[in-house]
């Protein structure tokens, strides 16, 4: 008889590991890759593959160099890779996702201690970095259904304005609500189809990977803000619909702002965080220098996560005021 194993309770564990949760996120995003490939051509697959492979490779190599056990098995780098690709236009030169992946996995995630330690969403930080460094590449959107081939440069594609650039200049995009909802429009690879993103979000909520708090408060705040501050010459509801279905709002609210590491853990904290993201998004969209504010809004709110966690610490069981007198 061998020695008995002695360990602290509990002695059983739930089967959902980080890897299982990340697999669910990947499942929720697969339809977005397929839809992106349908609208912008097979080049979407190439961009996504390059991005995913670079993220995994940089995470693996970085941990190899610093002599830490490889965390690649938790699949979080795959999720990052897919999300990074989702934030790029289909015409993007293929070296850009490689640079972005290096920035996300090494500078933002690795140097701060790897998964769970980074204080900013690596993908969004990389997106902003790429946006600031190569703005023309990052905003070179191709026409929907003008499909780009699997291989070859996409730079010669005819550029198309996104609905956000139009909104910024006070015009309504020339698109039907149906086209905006299903994602028949110009934009980044994974941000166009609101309906598929919402379906993915619903899947994640049902599977208890994320909770409803951040998506609902984020999107809800944008909706209310745009209803109140709609330009007088445009119908408020039409304006709100355009704001909700344009740009990266849905992708941001459902897949980016809910990143575990960089969002609060309490229900109240998550609601405040979502409202903050929504307000900042609308401030930037309306008063800022950029047409899109989702990335900046989330990154700024990332910085408040510790204070939101601490500030919304639940009242412990039996610690309420009602109980204080008892």
């Amino acid at each position: 008889m061998g020695l008995l194993k002695v360990s602290a309770s509990p002695h059983i564990r739930h089967e959902d590991t980080t890897r299982v949760l990340m697999s669910d996120v990947i499942i929720a995003m697969i339809a977005l890759v397929i839809w992106g490939a349908y609208v912008f051509g097979l080049r979407v697959i190439t961009v996504t593959a390059v991005s995913v492979i670079s993220c995994v490779a940089f995470e693996f190599l970085f941990n190899l160099i610093i002599k830490k056990p490889s965390p690649v098995g938790d699949l979080s780098a795959v999720v990052s890779g897919m999300l990074l690709a989702f934030n790029l236009p289909a015409t993007i030169p293929l070296w850009i996702p490689v640079v972005g992946a290096a920035f996300a996995m090494i500078v933002v995630k690795g140097l701060f201690g790897g998964i769970g330690k980074n204080f900013m969403n690596p993908v969004l930080a990389a997106r902003v970095f790429l946006f600031a460094s190569w703005p023309s590449h990052m905003t070179n959107y191709s026409e929907p259904l003008m499909r780009l081939p699997l291989f070859g440069e996409g730079i010669d594609a005819v550029s198309s304005a996104t609905s956000l650039t139009l909104l910024k200049s006070g015009q309504l995009p020339d698109l039907s609500v149906k086209d905006m909802l299903i994602g028949n429009m110009a934009g980044c690879i994974g941000e166009i189809s609101s309906i598929l993103i919402l379906a993915g979000g619903l899947y994640l909520i049902v599977r208890r990977v994320i909770t409803w708090h951040i998506p609902v408060s984020f999107i809800g705040t944008v909706a209310i803000f745009s209803l109140i501050f709609a330009p007088s010459e445009i119908n408020a509801l039409t304006y709100m619909t355009a704001e909700l279905l344009s740009g990266g709002l849905m992708l941001g609210a459902i897949f980016m702002a809910t990143d575990y590491v960089t969002s609060p853990v309490t229900p109240k904290g998550r609601l405040i965080y979502g409202v903050g993201c929504g307000l900042l998004t609308m401030f930037i969209r309306n008063f800022g220098g950029y047409p899109e504010g989702v990335s900046f809004a989330i990154l700024i709110m990332n910085l408040f996560v510790w204070y939101l966690d601490r500030g919304t610490k639940p009242v412990k069981f039996g610690g309420g005021k009602k109980n204080a007198k008892a």
Partner: peptide, 15 residues
């Protein structure tokens, strides 16, 4: 490795 998912907060009966 804590990934800050908050599942422990949700399940804690002592809040």
């Amino acid at each position: 490795n804590c990934i800050h998912c908050g599942k422990c907060v949700g399940s804690c009966p002592m809040r």
